[in-house]
Amino acid sequence: MEFIHNNLEIIYFVIFCVFIGIEVIANVPAILHTPLMSGANAISGIIMVGAVIMISQVPPTNYVTLALGGIAVFFGALNISGGFFVTGRMLKMFNTKK
């Protein structure tokens, strides 16, 4: 209960996000399902932001944690860059016709 009370604002935010998200995506036609999926996949790479914040708080002498964090950031960056570039490449094919 206390947890809900303390985070009420964010809980509202989450609920709105869920409904807006479904509303926006529900209209995507079948021909764009793959780009939608890979584009969304790239957006989930925003988790890298969390990894960056995390590393910044780790003491620099803690090598193991630092290395794990570095790999986390690498994975996140891979997800973001690969996701957006590959989506762009696919969509380019959809657009080059007459």
Partner: peptide, 15 residues
């Protein structure tokens, strides 16, 4: 796409 998705998941685990 699976691979990239896995990378995102991997980031989440390590985090």
């Amino acid at each position: 796409i699976s691979l990239f998705n896995g990378a995102g998941g991997g980031c989440a685990v390590l985090l």
